[in-house]
C-alpha cells in the first residue's frame, strides 16, 4: 500500500527514563494533552540503560524513529546515566547514515518529570520530522522484499 505523507503515521520507539520522561508522559495523560499515537514508550530505569543495540534493534524491528528521553544534564539520578546515553547516541549517529538511516531519525532530549508540555512538544516535533522523512528505509526495504 503506497503511503503518502498525510496518511503515513510514523512509529516511534521512545525509551523513557522512569525518573523523568515516563512520569512526564503520565502527566501529559492526566492533562489530556494529545500527541502522535505512533509513539510507543519503553520504560527504562535510566537513559543510561539504553544500549546501542536496543536503538539499532528498534530500527530493525520497524521503528521510523527512535527517541531517548533522559533527565536534564547534571540531574541524573544515577549521576552519569544521561551522559552515557548521549555518548551512545552520538556514537550511533556517526554511522547511522552509512547504514542508510537518516540521522534525524534518532534524537536524545533532556526533560524532567514535571515537564509534561515539553514531553508533548518533543514527541510531536519528532513525529513531524519523521513524517517529512517518510517511512524508515529499513521498513521500506522489508516491505519491498
Amino acid at each position: 500500500m503506497p503511503e503518502d505523507k498525510n496518511r503515513f503515521s510514523p512509529k516511534i520507539a521512545a525509551f523513557c527514563c522512569f525518573h523523568s520522561a515516563y512520569l512526564a508522559a503520565d502527566s501529559a495523560g492526566a492533562m489530556r494533552k494529545s500527541y502522535s499515537d505512533g509513539v510507543y514508550i519503553i520504560r527504562v530505569p535510566c537513559a543510561g540503560k539504553v544500549e546501542g543495540l536496543h536503538i539499532l534493534q528498534a530500527f530493525e524491528k520497524g521503528a521510523d524513529g527512535v527517541l531517548i528521553l533522559a533527565c536534564p544534564q547534571e540531574s541524573c539520578h544515577y549521576i552519569s546515566g544521561n551522559i552515557r546515553a548521549k555518548k551512545r547516541v552520538d556514537y550511533i549517529l556517526r554511522f547511522l547514515e552509512e547504514i542508510g538511516i537518516e540521522p534525524e531519525r534518532l534524537k536524545l532530549f533532556n526533560l524532567a518529570s514535571n515537564q509534561a508540555p515539553r514531553f508533548v512538544q518533543v514527541v510531536n516535533e519528532m513525529a513531524e520530522r519523521i513524517k517529512d522523512l517518510g517511512p524508515s528505509p529499513i521498513k521500506a526495504g522489508v516491505i519491498g522484499r
Binding site: C71, P72, Q73, E74, S75, N110, L111, A112, S113, N114, Q115
Partner: peptide
C-alpha cells in the same frame, strides 16, 4: 512549581 531546566538542570 515548574521545572526550570534548559537542557541542563538548573538545580
Amino acid at each position: 512549581f515548574c521545572c526550570k531546566a534548559t537542557d541542563v538542570c538548573n538545580k
